[in-house]
Write a protein that binds this DNA or RNA. Structure first.
Lengths: 338, 338
DNA sequence: CTGAAAGCGCTTACAG
DNA sequence: CTGAAAGCGCTTACAG
């Protein structure tokens, strides 16, 4: 592999290593002629700069780490795609911090900034992986994606969760549903709490009491939706609609309902949240609140790279628009149903 | 951030930097007492080693790069999960090389080994991103996941694609289907060609001719399955079963069939390939060939890390077992159907 | 078991 | 516009 270094190029081109370095990085401090000479020598020698050396010298790794519970989750996958695109376009690489939701691993990945393996962090978690009791001044460049750490001063990109959940609720209300269940995300998460709050607000505005037996806590996975559906349908009094805080939970929910002999949407309407690509393909296709996942990721990356290069972000909260996508998994309430 | 270096720790502990380095890395060349002293000093100073410096010195980045078409794809997501787990357990980090199938980007990410940003590559592509006309001796540590580059000497981890596709075909044949369509992956890919070959073998063994109008080429995405279904159902002579080379295509296929008014499985049986988590949750649940995706990723990582540390792999081809998972999307052929 | 010192391959003031 | 030289913060023979 590339055993040839900047010294060899300097010798070959008959200039100093300083000049080679400038020419290679196009710093503009080198005459056109010299630059050409250097480039030719580098080309001829098949030279590739050793980034490890440049990294040490500049104290920058050129990496960002994205701390995320599960890469294999559809929504997370989209977020990462957006992050990667922007990072690459600006010469950065993405380190994968897959945590499975473990606070320990979140902290381990966050440590990569201290050990200089990463220049900044995109954090898709509601937990702050650093001690901020002494303020946030010592923190590395850090951006929150979707989730909110409840630490003031950390930039964040997300949809307006509260409003989005209220919009979902209104959709079900407009369809005549009053017996509405929700399957939440982790209630430690401010974003999940905001969604629940949006649901409650929507219900209150319509003058309808929330049945607390129909508030089931999940964690965004299909299994959680499945379990929730079984629980709900075993109740004496059953909901006519279920609003899940993720599409994957909605898929699990629909699956369980079907197995229990309920028809979606005629017996029970089901809504999701996220608008993942596969939500179009379920049977029936899923009504959902679509989030611009790739753009959220892209915006996170843009803000983080700005932070790394020393910019102050324009604003701490960037809200991207959500969209109600009505498909076949919700239907107007049949008043005469069993 | 950590402005304190090994020199500060050395001064604090009253030893040399060499000793600090040994103590910190537990090289065993330091007395227990000295080690304790050093560790205490490091602890007290809140010292975190600068990996950039260690990297330059040892000429190892501690990173591997995974070159993959689409992180957001369910199957790819599982593979990456397996890779990440093993890499982390051995102290390596994973750089994300999302290519969207672009040969250019594949090459760019592959260059990260030349620039020392990565110590090795897991390549989920059928294209070799290096010039191997002069042999494979100059190649960096490299492992092929699932895909096959057709370059001899590159370790590879996959299922037996040919056999797996034949098993799928046999399942449909056992259900009485003879009019079987396939939706393939990229035919540039040896793995997709092997699956098609397995299908043809299965058909031939049953003495049934393959109708070439029913061989549709896709690229693993739901849209491809959708398009294939529309094409197939517009034919004068229609298949009674469709075998898709990915679950996502099968989902798209089922969706289109439903929209066209066909019932799955009673009018048309549909099979997938991969066994992604969501395949359980489709309606009807998807019959598929399950691949041990996480284990494939894990095995890739294990072999690659071995290669990086100088081991020769036991064998160049590691085949992991696939499994036919029969669910509701396939059914015995109704002889009397329209 | 411990230390003095070289060096990994770049970048960057500084001087000319 | 160009060069000589210091130095980023570690690790590692080498010597004792």
């Amino acid at each position: 592999m590339s055993r040839v270094g900047i010294k060899d190029i300097a010798a070959e081109a008959g200039v100093s290593t300083a000049t080679v370095s400038h020419a290679l990085r196009n710093s503009g401090r080198v005459s056109e002629l010299t630059r050409k000479k250097v480039l030719a020598a580098a080309q001829k020698a098949g030279y590739t700069p050793n980034r490890l050396a440049a990294n040490l010298r500049t104290s920058r790794s050129g990496n960002i780490v994205v701390i995320i519970p599960d890469v294999a989750d559809s929504f997370n996958g989209q977020i990462i795609t957006g992050i990667e695109q922007v990072a690459r376009s600006k010469g950065y690489s993405v380190l994968l911090g897959n945590t499975g939701g473990s606070p320990n691993r979140e902290r381990e990945f966050a440590e990569m900034t201290r050990s200089r393996q990463a220049d900044g962090i995109i954090l898709m978690s509601h937990r702050m992986p650093f001690d901020v009791s002494g303020g946030i001044d010592g923190l590395p460049p850090l951006v929150n994606g979707c989730e909110n750490t409840d630490v003031a001063g950390i930039p964040r990109v997300a949809v307006r969760d509260r409003r989005a959940a209220r919009d979902a609720t209104r959709h079900l209300l407009e369809y005549g549903h009053e017996k509405i269940a929700v399957v939440t995300g982790d209630m430690e998460s401010a974003s999940s709490r905001a969604r629940l709050d949006g649901f409650r607000t929507g219900m209150r505005d319509a003058g309808i009491d929330v049945n607390e037996d129909w508030v089931i806590h999940g964690n965004y996975q299909p299994e959680d939706g499945e379990r929730a559906a079984r629980r709900l349908m075993s109740l004496r009094s059953r909901p006519t609609a279920v609003f899940c805080f993720s599409d994957e939970m909605a898929m699990g929910c629909m699956h369980a309902l079907r197995e229990l002999g309920f028809d979606v949407p005629h017996d029970v309407s089901v809504m999701g949240f996220d608008g993942v690509p596969l939500s179009r393909y379920t049977a029936p296709p899923l009504t959902t609140i679509a989030q611009p996942a790739e753009e959220i990721g892209a915006a996170c990356a843009r803000i983080l790279l700005g932070l790394i290069e020393g910019e102050k972000p324009d604003c701490l909260e960037t809200f991207l628009p959500h969209e109600l996508v009505v498909r076949g998994s919700t239907a107007p309430l049949k008043r005469d149903r069993v």
